[in-house]
Every structure is written in C-alpha cells, then in structure tokens.
Design a protein around this nucleic acid. Structure first.
Lengths: 226, 226
DNA sequence: ACAACTTTTTACAATCTCTTTACAGTGTGT
DNA sequence: ACACACTGTAAAGAGATTGTAAAAAGTTGT
C-alpha cells in the first residue's frame, strides 16, 4: 500500500492528517520540521509527500526545492495557511505538484492524494524487466544482457523496445512510436524509426538479416514477438 | 473523416483551432459556451472534444463532469490557460483524457488529437477477427491463417477483404472499393481491383476457379459470402 | 573546447507491393 | 449462334517501402 510522508509541525494538524490517511489505508510517517522531512523523504521513499509551507528551521518551499534538485520526483502536495496567490505561484515554481490551502476539506485532500498516486502509479507500473531469446532487459536500470554479456543499448533504443514489448503481438506504426516514444513536440522523420529498428536488430536479433523478434509489417509498422 | 467539437469562447483561439483542424481534414463544429457544448457533444457525436477550462456560464470542468456522468466517453482534451498542476489533476479527475496548457504548439495539439483518434478508433471500430471456411483473419495483427498454416496477405488484400466482409452478403462495386479502400485521392484503374480479387481468390478460396466466398456479380462488382 | 557518444538525416540499394497491360475466357442480349 | 462487353489472370513494369551504412548534427561529461 502507498506510503505518505507528512511534513508538518502543528500537532493537531498532524493528528488529523495522519488519521485520515491511515483510514484510507495508507502507511504514514511524520516529520516535525524541514530537516527531518528531507531525511525521511530520502530514506523512506514515500509515494507522496504532504508538505506544510510554514515550518520551523527550514521552510517547506526550501524542502521542496532541495528535494527536486536532488532528483527526487515524489509527488509533493503543499499545504499553505493562506490562499495567497504568491504562495501558490512560488510553491509550484519550486517544484510542488499540487497545493491545498488551509482550511481544506479532508475529502478534497484525500481525493487529490488519490489522483496523484493514481497518476504516479501509472508511470511506475511499467514492466521492470523482460526476457526473450537470450536477451534480458531491465528497464528500471536501463541495463541489458545477451548471452550473459552486457549489451549496450542507448536510451532511445530502450524506450523503443519498451514500447514494442508493452504491445507485443500488436502492430505498432511508426507514427505511434514517434508520438509515444519521441513525444508530441519533436518530429523526426519516420525514417529515423527504421534506423533505430535496424540498429536494435543488430543488437538483439540472433540473425539480424532474418529478424525473429522485431518483425516488419510492410506498409504498416513493426511488431514485437517474444 | 473524424469530427472535432471545439468548446471555446475566445474568438481568436476558435479561429486558430478550427483552421488547423480543418487543414488536417477534420470536420469541425464550435460551441461558444458550456451549455452549447453539452448539447453539441450529445447531438453531433464528435470523435474528440477540445474543451477550454475557462468558459462563460459553465466551466469546462463541469462540462466534462456532466458528459462523463451521462456516459459519454468521447475523448476530451482540455485546454487551459495556466500550467498549474492543480488544473491538471482536477481535470483528469473529472474525466478528461488529456490536457494541454496554453500557449501550446499547434503541431503538438494536432499530434495529440491524432493519437487519441487512433486509440479511440481502434477500440470502437472494426471487426478484429473473422473466420470463414478454413481461413482465419486477424485484422488487428494483419495476420491470416488457412488450415492452421500462415497465410500471406498484403495490406491491400487485407483491406479489400475487410471491406467485403464488413458488407458480407451485399454487392460491392469496384468504384466503391476504389473509393473506400484506396481512398478518394488515388485513382487506379478499375481493372486493378479485379487483379487483387483474383489474387485473393487464389489465396483464400478452396478452389480458386470455382469461388465460394468472393462471388462475381456480373456488370456490378463482387459479393462476399461466408 | 574537446572527445565520446547518441540521435537524426541522407542516400542508395534491395525488396516488396501495386498497377498496368494484354490476351484468353465467360456471360449477355439479339 | 454471334458480336460485344465484361471478367480472369499471368507477366512485366512502375512505384513504394524498407534496410542500412555513413555523414551530419546534437549531447554530455571532463
């Protein structure tokens, strides 16, 4: 079940938040100030952080900023006392994902937490590893092996493979790959896809000139087969 | 061709969106406020809805929520002025499928629309597989088997078969096939159709010289029988 | 700024599909 | 039965798509 880290100093607030979250079935841990919060955010790997802006020692904004510069991407939901526009703007600027102004309804807060967790879990729930033929892939570590030997795949190659594998058996068009792997805002030529496929084949196929795993479907696209 | 419903009040925005969509070949209709949007979403059965969050009378979020509670599952792409994460969360919670913040690049928007349409059309549309005699077709995978053996069909042959099967029992003219399978902009000779039919028969008929499934209707066209 | 590496573009060859063509065969109306 | 129109189909040519190497452009780390 999801872990929630609450960084908050007001005891009453802590109590209310903790209760509600536990009632929802989340595992809860609490930090009473920014410093402790930073530590727990790193060590306990929560799935979401509820972060008060007003904290002793170090402000919530700083905690947020530091976490982000450390590359920690856990969703952060800021709690602010006033509904001042400034706080919102600064909060989001500093890397928070969402904010709620006190007093807030618990129901709303829980709904937002749920939404963030849902979105985050969608991103995470990807396949972590996959094996076919004599190739092992670990998408989480971006590591691959073939015949037990380390296999060098570029990030893009990993992403393409991941996409193909996620839809293994189905045909994937070049446009789909461009949209989903490259993203909507960049637009390489569709031939770029073919090139990456060719390179992938040379790396993962037993016989690249006679592909067994990445099959081309003429005029349509490619298909991955285990 | 796909229908796009734009629910947006800013005239300039409407103009830009409309132009771009029409340039892509979509049929476009516009609603200037939430109420009109709700109506058109129901009556015009668009394939995708572009929905501004900030609307007079009724907010885009409400429009979205209402559509969903009415069981309308048309993909909704929300347009919002600020890049505030909050809007995004609420938007997605309320049932939107995607989300773009202004200012956005038209290219990106169109790419997203395309992706959604592709996804949606896949879910709804076509027969995914079909079996007749000893032939099995899987239109999604562009794969065919006969007597359990893999059967090699070209994309065009698949499309022709799909079209004939969708209208099985009915007569289909060569011009119909040319229009629908080939598309309105290309114009091979009608004899080309006959050639493809001949090849199809050799591949799928038990006895190609005595067709049981693809029947010639003299002077008219062809008809598919299971 | 340089080197090492990844990604994208480009170009050409190879391959596959589609279209045209031509002629033989079949159907239709008189 | 005859002429004419329509259809079947093989074969060749045209056209499109894909494979791939190599160059160009872009990134990253030092």
């Amino acid at each position: 079940m999801a872990k929630v880290l609450i960084i908050e100093d007001e005891p009453n607030m802590v109590l209310g938040l903790k209760d509600s979250c536990e009632y929802e079935g989340y595992e809860v841990s609490v930090a009473r100030d920014g410093k402790e919060g930073l530590e727990k955010a790193s060590t306990e790997k929560p799935d979401i952080i509820l972060l008060d802006v007003m904290l002793p020692v170090m402000s919530g904004l700083d905690v947020c900023r530091i976490l982000r510069t450390r590359g920690i991407e856990t969703p952060i939901l800021m709690l602010t006392a006033r509904s001042e526009e400034t706080d919102k703007v600064v909060g989001l600027e500093v890397g928070a994902d969402d904010y709620v102004t006190k007093p807030f309804s618990i129901k709303e807060l829980l709904a937002r937490i749920r939404a963030h967790l849902r979105r985050a879990s969608k991103q995470v729930s990807e396949i972590e590893s996959f094996t076919f033929g004599d190739v092992e892939l670990n998408f989480k570590k971006y590591a691959a092996r073939k015949d037990g030997q380390t296999l060098d795949l570029s990030p893009r190659e990993f992403e393409i493979l991941r996409y193909l594998i996620r839809r293994r058996g189905d045909i994937v068009t070049r446009d789909q790959l461009l949209d989903e792997v490259w993203g909507y805002d960049s637009t390489p030529v569709t031939r770029t896809v073919d090139n990456h496929i060719a390179k992938l084949r040379q790396k993962i196929e037993p016989d690249p000139s006679e592909p067994r795993h990445i099959i081309t479907v003429h005029r349509i696209g490619y298909r991955f087969i285990e």
